[in-house]
Amino acid sequence: MDVGTFIQSLWGGVLEAGLIAMVAVGLYLVLGVARVLNFAHGHILVLGGFCTWGFRETYNLNFWLAALLGLLIVGMGGIVMERFPFRRFYGNFVPIICVGVALIYLFEGGVVQFFGPETKTVGTVISGTSGIKGWFIMRNWDWLVIGAGLGCLVGSGLFLAKTRIGRAMRATAVDPDTANLQGIGALGMARYAMFIGCALAAVGGGLMAPKYGASIGVGLAWMIKGMLAIIIGGLGSFYGCLCACLLLGMAVSFSITYINAQAGYIAMFVLLVVVILVRPWGLFGKKITVGMPGE
């Protein structure tokens, strides 16, 4: 086994982890603060990519400007999603899941209707590669994605840790009634969570677009990756979620390098099963009792 390939896979894992985290953090926020498990969250990521593609294709905008517009539009879309379909069903988990599934069909149908079913290619923004010769080489674009993704994640971590709204969101997530008693409006917090979650996913989708293109078909797969990260990390743990993203990214990257291209997905689920067997509450979650009552 040569060291170069190993390090190469390591960085590939970081890249994949970053993209998973862009989905997972949004899912985590919306689940924690609004108690909404948004099944269409992966599609939000893809819609971010579509916005970027659309603005470049139609108005020939600069990539960064297009991505920024995508972020804002999709973020606003999140606010609309919170206000109309989800708000009616707060506190009732099953209809919320149905709404998510309905949104998936809406997004897929809409995209195919207006833009056609094929994958959209967004041209390269930065070309070339860098790294240390003989050790590891990555495309410059991938370096940039890692940087931008890391920036967004550190940013949202700091936002949650240090700001007034961030604290209020955390308080709402752990104890909604008591948060209410501090004058924190739960609906307002749900709106923030939805905006931030959707905007993060849109950034992820925008950053992915030059590499993978934009294809509505992959939405659900991303949502599932994000959900795996939340479960492995432990419900309610932000850092657990980020660690799980890193583990998942590594599992995908290494199994692709050392087994084959199809092994990535299997590796993620193997990781899930192993973690859940040992710690059913996830890596950093609060210990819970599991099993059927009385058994």
Partner: peptide, 10 residues
């Protein structure tokens, strides 16, 4: 401290 800060939310 954070608990107190949350108390001052309004």
């Amino acid at each position: 401290k954070e608990n107190l800060q949350v108390g001052a939310h309004i």
